[in-house]
Design a binder for these strands. Structure first.
Lengths: 145, 145
DNA sequence: GGCCATTTAATTGCGCACAACTTAGTTGCG
DNA sequence: CGCAACTAAGTTGTGCGCAATTAAATGGCC
């Protein structure tokens, strides 16, 4: 395949992913507005709801985000009264993040969000899993490169 | 399917997309470093290489970006000497963006980028097209919601 | 015990995304 | 014609993503 045609395909693929990511972001923005959460903040809350108290480091590994992104984000969640941060006593370098009662209660209000999102995508659960599988493969491959 | 399980699936799907988008961004960052372009700047250049001089509005429609994003981005491309912006004479509201000779010459150096990206994804061209198709469907559906 | 590499967070700086608003130019309608 | 509605860019403010740097704590090793 000639370079020029590849350049056009590249245009389409990278644009598709970029656009899809932003389209998702937009719909999540609407769905999460009532909860007062942004999309990345929602990701952090999902991790805390699912895995409980954990250090910043662990959250970063699960979401592939570094402290430059997480530190201010967590500070905003703390200001909103959803999480509490405290230095670990065993390892003074580590900061453990845990939900406040308000943060825990927010989970109930977040439960309907995924169903709304699922409907908005227009895909079946099967197709969603396929998409997720493809994206996972791509991400692993890209992470190695 | 119960809400709680959907919440977990949602975690996985939205995270997958978010992660894939950022993984792509990272690899593009490396591939484009030599050209002095960021990933969104590359998208704008692709549009200009393919479609020639056009108003900011048109670029925004093609990439689904608004003036709040494009204005400073185009200003940086202009500072870098890659594009020129000038008010249209027929419609003084409109600003036409066109490539400078340097911007045009950059195209040759960008030609090998897609092949590198294709290799980095580890997918065949067929799979890429499938992914693109799925993402396109999702994006249209989400845009309507 | 003292030194050094490593680890964990936080901070700084830059660019992108988007909402809300502003400014200037155009169009349409009475 | 004149004025309201609309349109194209730009500006401002907030938050995310990431590279680079800093600060503090830990662990290993002599």
């Amino acid at each position: 395949m000639p370079d020029a045609e590849l350049l056009r395909l590249d245009h389409q693929v990278c644009f598709s992913l970029h656009a899809a990511s932003r389209a998702f972001g937009g719909v999540y923005r609407d769905a999460l507005k009532d909860l007062g959460l942004t999309y990345p903040q929602y990701l952090v809350m999902l991790v805390l709801w699912e895995h409980g108290p954990q250090p910043v480091k662990t959250i970063g590994e699960r979401l592939r985000l570094d402290s430059g992104t997480l530190s201010p984000l967590l500070k905003r969640l703390e200001t909103a009264g959803l999480v509490r941060r405290e230095r670990s006593s065993e390892d003074e370098r580590s900061v453990t993040v845990q939900l406040t009662p308000a943060g825990d209660e927010l989970r109930a209000r977040a439960l309907p969000v995924p169903r709304r999102m699922l409907a908005a995508t227009g895909l079946t659960i099967e197709e969603l899993r396929t998409l997720q599988g493809l994206l996972g493969r791509v991400t692993s491959a890209l992470d190695e490169a």
